[in-house]
């Protein structure tokens, strides 16, 4: 109990004093995870829509696959991306290992299945409602998928947020492909892991509390935006 109070006080102090190192770590965390979320949405949402609307062989297999990949272990993704980006790997020549770009790639791979699977669910429900109307108007399946993506944009924020939540909270993948380099690839979660291994548990927990606060802030902003938008558009 005493330790948790210490952490709360410490978290408050770190935020109140505007600790510059903390600020840069939080900024990098947000930069990496928000970019990964954006990329995952750009890839995963159209994919989810096609899985919902499309009719092609192997569709059910793909749906099950993406549902399963939602539980992809971050360490495995990290290792995979490490082997790809390592100098000895197929993409080694780009020198991306131990950069924020590598972390973005790993987190994107990690959360594309989450975004795609949740988007598929949202779009499939909408498709059931819209299907006849869109077909009657002469929309192709591809066109219908695009229309449903745009029309479901408020519900789809949930898919994006789920992906973001997973991205910013994971440590296994960014630790391996980022290397936790001070000032370059050190993010919230890797800092927490580092402080834990230094035995500074109050500081680690304080950082954890700040991470939770950041995630809550992003979710609150998204929630309010969605509320406003739904009130506006129905």
């Amino acid at each position: 109990m005493g330790e948790i109070t210490t952490s709360l006080v410490l978290a408050g102090e770190l935020v109140a004093t505007g600790d510059a190192r903390l600020a840069s770590i939080v900024t990098l965390s947000l930069q990496v995870s928000l970019t990964a979320t954006l990329l995952a949405c750009l890839i995963g949402m159209p994919l989810g829509a096609l899985l919902a609307v499309g009719r092609f062989p192997g569709r059910h297999t793909l749906i099950v696959l993406f549902n399963g990949l939602m539980g992809l272990p971050p360490v495995v993704v990290g290792l995979l991306v490490y082997l790809l980006l390592s100098r000895a790997g197929p993409l080694g020549q780009f020198g991306l290992l131990f950069t924020p770009a590598a972390m973005i790639i790993a987190q994107t791979i990690l959360i594309v299945p989450i975004v795609a699977a949740l988007a598929r669910q949202v779009i499939e429900d909408a498709w059931r409602e819209y299907r006849e109307q869109l077909r009657s108007l002469g929309a192709s399946r591809l066109r219908a998928a695009m229309t449903l993506l745009w029309d479901g944009r408020f519900s789809l924020t949930t898919a994006g947020l789920a992906g973001f939540g997973r991205a910013i909270a994971e440590v296994g993948a960014v630790m391996i492909v980022g290397g936790n380099i001070d000032g370059v690839t050190r993010v919230m979660t890797t800092t927490i892991a580092l402080e834990t291994s230094k035995g500074d548990l109050p500081l680690a927990l304080a950082l954890g509390l700040i991470l939770i606060a950041v995630v809550l802030a992003v979710n609150t902003a998204a929630f309010m935006l969605r509320q406003w938008a739904e009130k506006r558009w129905g």
Binding site: E129, Q133, S136, R153
Partner: peptide, 26 residues
């Protein structure tokens, strides 16, 4: 051909854009 359903399916946009949608598909 065209069809109007018992429960109209409105896209989350303006009334005008809903009417334009069918024309855009053409």
């Amino acid at each position: 051909q065209g069809m109007v359903f018992q429960r109209p399916v409105m896209l989350r946009t303006t009334a005008l854009a809903n009417v334009e949608y069918g024309l855009k598909l053409r």
